[in-house]
């Protein structure tokens, strides 16, 4: 029950974030600080979510480190999201066979 409530909260909040600006805001946000803040938010959220969690994501720090290294290298060379996601998994899997 509690989980259902949490899931509903996630869905409602996520929808409202998309819907309210899409139906109402047409003007440009004037505050340069807020525009800048909003510009960096996606990157800081993803960075904070990824590090250090990625190193705990496979249940073994060594395979996770190999997978993370693969992800970082492939991302650096601009490979598509799906390729990086697979490559990281494949690297972690291969590492798990070795360790």
């Amino acid at each position: 029950m509690k989980t259902a409530l949490y899931i509903a909260a996630m869905a409602i909040v996520t929808y409202l974030i998309r819907m309210i600006p899409f139906t109402s805001i047409r003007g440009k946000i004037r505050s340069r600080f807020i525009r800048s803040f909003l510009y960096y938010i996606p990157y800081t959220v993803l960075a904070a979510m990824t590090i250090p969690a990625i190193f705990f994501s496979t249940g073994d720090a060594r395979t996770a480190a190999v997978g993370a290294a693969a992800a970082f290298i492939m991302s650096y060379f601009g490979l598509p999201l799906t390729a990086v996601a697979f490559g990281a998994s494949a690297a972690a899997f291969v590492a798990s066979l070795i360790f």
Partner: peptide, 14 residues
């Protein structure tokens, strides 16, 4: 276990 890293890989790629 290996698939558990996928989402994080995607975040890195963004």
């Amino acid at each position: 276990d290996a698939l558990g890293i996928m989402l994080y890989g995607m975040f890195a790629a963004i």
